[in-house]
Design a protein around this nucleic acid. Structure first.
Lengths: 336, 336
DNA sequence: TACATTGATAATAACGTTTTCATAGCGAGC
DNA sequence: GCTCGCTATGAAAACGTTATTATCAATGTA
């Protein structure tokens, strides 16, 4: 009476059985048009909202989806989350978010816990092992962003193309010896990018100078500064923008000015890449789009009546030429 | 048999009734120690997990909490979310996150929708009206961050103190005519800070020059540049760090260098404030701590058997002297 | 000895849906 | 005209918990 309005109240108001009310919402085509109208208007009049818990109890579905990110304070992820979220909202899914703090073991455990609360998951840049990932995949629909594991649907970025564009850019600017500051070897995309760098530098007949692996943070970039200075190169490619910004910052401490003394290119195009001074030359990866696409896939998987889901998608990257890369100082023929 | 293990399976295994199993988890003190042990071990052996939906159905509680933020890509919020989340996790609450896209009307609607899925809410920098806020408060426990409404529990920052510190700092550096670049008038904390600026500048016998209101974004800060230049001041206080960074960036376009030609101070101490070059003088507000505290309050409200929740908390800010503020060029007595 | 009192457990009734399964009505085909 | 099949609906049985009430033994009290 006093409590929230139930399906029974609507049934009474529309003079039908509760079953018919339920059908009206779940399988509208199964109920006569005029009855349907009657039920709908009664429901609207009473402001009826189905009780999720009761639905869940019987269907076994929660109606929620989950997002897992390694570190929300890393500027890469909020955009991804936003992309997922806005698409999820369109589709009517509330979103459970979890931040694993970059801890692979914790990540796996949190996914297990979260798994019971959601009908599907989007895992961003998952740190856990392939095996763990595959075992979670057994449990419920899951799509990956920025990580590939055979047999698991994923949205990735065309990093090879992005790196290729940067290499071409540096070659066009006349650089020959090029340093690469890698991210952590444990990171999937770090390994992918490292591979692409080696491949494309070689293909362009340029010399790769490995500077080493560092944490994918501002401080990680900073700590690469000394080795960069010792590498005797005119240009450095850095695993990501945050590190590139850190590197540039520390380089300034050494009195080395970018781009005058050294060309630096980043990766990701985080918001602050454009805001830095000088603005960072980088490769844009469409993060929000990736999130939205992943959510669309997930939805397809979850509502899959039919057979296979679509193949993994690889999103195009875009090279962004800004202020931290310049033509190598003119020497020889041109300079004479 | 095949499906997930239910309370009934545990009851059978422990040779007690389902009711006793339930009690073992809900009110352990109500069941005999030896029985309890038997139930617990049976539950562990079978890897029993209570079905949330069934629990929800009868208790009317979801066990989830919700977070609402205006814009996740604003670097202020991820830290807050992280603070809430990590505390929530300790307390055993999964977290539903929603990003309102800075839209007050949407915000209110989303809170309504989200409200049905959670037992309590943390609203960060809520944009909606006091009335809407109060009406949502009727529905379920709710705590605010960075917004005050009489009668609603909140975690805020001691902005007056933060502003006072900045004013003192500028005075100590010898500045007299000081510009203030305000945030949007519709924002609660913008109004609060504006008020504090006026008060403390006056108290310090300094001259306030209002530069105008701008969007609280990098571009917002940029668009303030012309007016700042026309204000004929030696120092500018800016509503927040993102704007301050934008302002400095645009100033550079005008050939005005910070801090040599102009002192700029921000607010918030976002990550990039320290990373910028020169690093931004600002006021740190403990965002992660605020999130955690808000979550603790919320938990107290939700589990409140007793009477009133604790009073709203105001967190201390910390002045951070970095590179964008310098002593005003020496003139007069000292310079002769 | 009889009778409250307490403590531990069991039985059972919700909670609000969805989903068989059954049934009534009704037009079509033979 | 009788059955067949199809559509629209209702009745009732789940789903897995928690909360309420009842039962029963043990203990304390008069």
């Amino acid at each position: 009476m006093s409590g929230p309005v139930t399906i029974r109240d609507v049934a009474r108001a529309a003079d039908v059985s509760p079953a018919t009310v339920s059908r009206t919402f779940v399988r509208p085509e199964k109920v006569d048009a005029v009855t349907r109208e009657r039920v709908l208007s009664a429901a609207a009049r009473l402001d009826y909202r189905p009780n999720r818990a009761a639905q869940s109890l019987i269907t076994g579905l929660t109606g929620n989806i989950g997002i897992v990110v390694p570190d929300l304070t890393n500027p890469f992820f909020p955009s991804v989350v936003r992309g997922i979220q806005s698409r999820a909202e369109e589709l009517g899914y509330p979103v459970l978010l979890v931040d694993t703090g970059e801890d692979a073991a914790r990540e796996s455990e949190l996914v297990t816990r979260l798994g019971r609360q959601v009908d599907g998951l989007v895992l961003c840049a998952a740190r856990m092992s392939d095996e763990d990932l595959l075992s979670h995949r057994q449990q419920r629909p899951l799509v990956l962003i920025n990580r590939e594991v055979p047999g698991v649907p994923a949205v990735t970025f065309d990093n090879a193309a992005g790196i290729a564009q940067e290499v071409m850019h540096l070659k066009a600017l006349g650089h020959v010896r090029i340093g690469y500051v890698a991210g952590p070897g444990t990171s999937y995309s770090s390994r992918v990018r490292q591979g692409a760098v080696t491949t494309h530098l070689a293909a362009a007949a340029l010399t790769e100078v490995a500077v080493g692996s560092f944490a994918p943070s501002f401080d990680g970039g900073r700590s690469a500064a000394e080795k960069v200075l010792l590498a005797n190169v005119t240009a450095v490619m850095v695993y990501n923008d945050v590190m590139a910004l850190g590197l540039i910052n520390q380089l300034a401490q050494y009195g080395v000015s970018v781009p005058n003394d050294l060309t630096v290119v980043g990766y990701d195009d985080i918001e602050f890449a454009a805001m830095a001074n000088p603005a960072l030359t980088t490769v844009r990866v469409p993060r929000e789009e990736a999130g939205a696409l992943a959510m669309s896939y997930l939805n397809a998987l979850m509502t899959a009546t039919g057979p296979a889901p679509e193949p993994p998608a690889q999103l195009k990257t875009e090279f962004i030429f800004r202020g931290t890369s310049v033509r190598v100082p003119l020497t020889g023929a041109l300079a004479e």
